[in-house]
Design a protein around this nucleic acid. Sequence first.
DNA 1: ACCCGAACATACTCCAGAGTATGTCCCTGC
DNA 2: GCAGGGACATACTCTGGAGTATGTTCGGGT
Lengths: 211, 211
Amino acid sequence: MTAHPIAANDGISADRREEVLAAAAECFMRRGYEATSMDDVAEMLGATKGRVYHHFRSKPELFFEVFRRAISILAREAGVHETGPGTAAARLRRMARAHVLCMMETQTFQRNLTLGVDLYRFGETSAEHRATLEELMDLRRAYEDAFRRTFAAGKADGSLAAPDPSLAMRTLLGAINWVAVWYSPRPGETRAHREALADGIVDQVLQGYLA
Amino acid sequence: MTAHPIAANDGISADRREEVLAAAAECFMRRGYEATSMDDVAEMLGATKGRVYHHFRSKPELFFEVFRRAISILAREAGVHETGPGTAAARLRRMARAHVLCMMETQTFQRNLTLGVDLYRFGETSAEHRATLEELMDLRRAYEDAFRRTFAAGKADGSLAAPDPSLAMRTLLGAINWVAVWYSPRPGETRAHREALADGIVDQVLQGYLA
DNA sequence: ACCCGAACATACTCCAGAGTATGTCCCTGC
DNA sequence: GCAGGGACATACTCTGGAGTATGTTCGGGT
């Protein structure tokens, strides 16, 4: 965070924390939040609980970080395309395409978004955690709103035909979020291959919203 | 199952078992599988664990029954429309519409389908449970295949334009499965209201696949 | 050479929750 | 009217997992 005299040391430390975060994402994605034990996360690292608790205060906070990371990736990769050249339809296509690629390439993080929403709906978290969850849900809502706004913009500039932008956003996001559920990378699969697949998906799905 | 001398008694008993099943579905949907305790299910019934364990041998078996019920509802309500009058596009529309209505009206059961798939992907269930899970996944696959076949039929009869029926099935199911995630019934909502919403969703989503 | 703190590992505590064993009530058939 | 079993409630056991307290190693600063 703050500038330390030895920047190199800070970078190493951050990397090791990152490893823990990635292992946690993997575990949470596979077994779900509750079924994942802190020992599971440690085992995946070839380490012990000590290491995990050294970097994260508790299991909820570890999960929250995974969630936060997932959204921040989406916002950076896909959300940025909201402001860009071309019609609303063109921008929406770029957003959706980037979103699908995120679902495929950072699947371990992205699948935790759904888990987080479930946790929110009827979590028994108390006070402090509740507040954090609210904040995370706001981040998610903010990201989704980019899609909603773009649908509305498409209605205005005539490039999209969405009677209900809110509903359109939900069906579109449903279709492309679902990618994280069924997609698994083929061995020896290249980036170009994924891009082609993403294009195919987006082409088909977006067909329903074009003017 | 088998015909008993006193049919009335059997019916009453079946109803009480049904109550437990519904309570379990509600709990599993809210908290997820692992986070739900057998005491939670009992508490929702205003009863104790004794009652739950009287009707179901274990927690996994209870969940499996919920899952099985969810698919059987889908197959009965939506799957049956695979064989019907009209073009493949018309049949697909009826299937999708019924599917969406199931997502809204039997949400508690349907949301457990996703949980089941997650459980399957990396469950630590052993031997017997593993076999049951395989069987349940087959049931799900069989249901999804109805959509896949209908897309293929639409390619043949010229009513649908799906280059890849398998991919089309996935994006379509993604969009309409997602309904169970975001939909919650408005107070005082009528069946007609839900049907209108379902029509709106299906109209929009199907647009992308029409020839 | 020594100290200190980051970065872990080890060895505990403690509770929630699955499963069980047993008791209780009531209805039904004889 | 009584024997038996279905349909639970009560009262346990026992393990797994979150969190903690304490030990250990190692690299850098003085």
